[in-house]
Design a protein around this nucleic acid. Structure first.
Lengths: 258, 258
DNA sequence: CGCTTCCTTGAGAAGTCTCAATTCGAGTGG
DNA sequence: CCACTCGAATTGAGACTTCTCAAGGAAGCG
């Protein structure tokens, strides 16, 4: 209930432990952070300067958390935009659909990451968000957040940076989609997830990709067969170790040099 | 000097005339708006509710405009982020480079559109911005803008919406790059530029694409040859009329139905 | 334990890229 | 004013990556 806007901030060096969600959950962080028992993500979420006096205001704002079961939709394209969300545990995908049927995965949101920013421009969500596994999200009412941002400068900065990060990460993904080969796309994706895991204090080299091959393919602009073939090839070359959705990265440099 | 953050807002119905920049400049708007002589984009830039009492504060904020000559760089990847910009006339591209040499066009910014939001996340620009023709931009110091956003709610809304729009438009481009054929990409691009022209009060069916075939290709994730072939094919089918960079859309529905 | 969904792998088809040769056009200097 | 030059655009032909279609196998779930 406590965590506000989540931020997988590069500026925050402290990894945060997180309750494994399932048998196949990511391995624990190198350090276990006991002080964050009620809200494992506090470290990640809080603007540094805010904790002392302004924390209560922020906590008052987060009125609730919500559980989203695997396959369940948190919000749908066209829904009115009322809240931002912070993924508290689990993982969701955001998807956009073109014309009837044609759907593309736009983003993968892991624990600690913000969700729903696509609704701000229009007061209407441009994407849908679907849980890839049983997840929980914090609900942050946007009007109240706006008010808070006008009171507290660090909160304003935080929100701006969250939006800015989404802009940059989408731009990077545009680069992947616009100019890279299948090998490079898959490799970039694995390294990206690995990096985000590191930031959240999980293992950087082993993780459970919650997406199906089809979802990965959609996100990467290739077909599921190409994803599968590429992963197999990576394994043969000794770059990774795959077991269905569970991935271990064996040779980081090899992946980077594709 | 007067225009603040520019917004090509759908909510603003009034087209705005703009001084043609060159011989090949876009045709004039259907209506000529005389009252905006000093700042042709005032209509586009102003949050509706703001004009009355808060306008002076906003004007004080925009300390200067800058001219950027064709080919000149406004900011570069890695530059420290101090200002947002609003394209006042002309057009710029934003580009990101991968590894040495490999560069991709991330966005096309037309008059009335904001620029530089990619710097917010990092205090460092993630993209470079290069003028496609002689252009001028308004400079909006970001720290001052932040302050203003905390004072004035409509200004805050405006900035949020600008960022939200960029997030959504990048997501749409990801969809184009991720799942569409060359024909669809080119068609989507032409229709997008046409739509943005309409919003700014220019002709929707005739315009000068300032980009080279190579830049278009980079933006669309295809090669310059494919762009050229596709445009030629469109012309043969009577969908468009091309004369180098000058484009006239003949059959909107035909393009949409690709 | 059976069903459904997901994944893997193969083979041929298709779209786009690469390389190359011309042509076009704008800007420059004689 | 015209010829020249250099970058940009067009077009062709062959190569290559990825897609499509198809079949079989693995795995998760009730």
């Amino acid at each position: 209930m406590l965590n506000p806007i989540a931020l997988p901030s590069v500026a925050l060096p402290t990894p945060v432990a997180h309750r494994p969600v399932r048998a196949t959950a990511p391995v624990r962080a190198r350090r276990d952070v006991a002080r964050c028992s009620t809200c494992a993500m506090r470290q990640l979420c809080m603007p540094q300067g805010l904790c002392a006096e302004d924390l209560p205001k922020l906590e008052a704002l987060i009125c609730s958390a919500r559980t989203v079961r695997r396959g369940e939709v948190l919000f749908r394209t066209g829904d009115s935009f009322d809240n931002l969300y912070a993924v508290r545990s689990g993982a969701l995908k955001t998807v956009m659909s073109h014309r009837l049927g044609r759907e593309q995965v736009i983003g993968l949101k892991l624990a600690g990451e913000p969700l729903g920013l696509d609704g701000i421009s229009n007061d209407t969500h441009a994407c849908s968000a679907v849980a890839l596994e049983d997840s929980s999200v914090c609900i942050v009412p946007y009007p109240a957040l706006k008010r808070l941002c006008r009171e507290i400068g660090t909160m304003q900065d935080r929100l701006h940076k969250l939006m800015g990060e989404q802009i940059v990460s989408e731009a990077r993904q545009m680069m992947v989609l616009g100019s890279q080969s299948a090998d490079e796309r898959v490799s970039a994706f694995l390294l990206d997830v690995s990096e985000r895991n590191t930031q959240r204090g999980y293992s950087s080299n082993e993780f459970n990709l919650r997406m199906t091959r089809e979802e990965m393919g959609s996100y990467l602009g290739i077909t599921l067969e190409t994803v599968s073939r590429t992963l197999s090839r990576f394994q043969k070359r000794g770059l990774i170790d795959i077991q269905g959705k569970f991935i271990r990265i064996v040779d980081f440099d090899g992946l980077r040099q594709l």
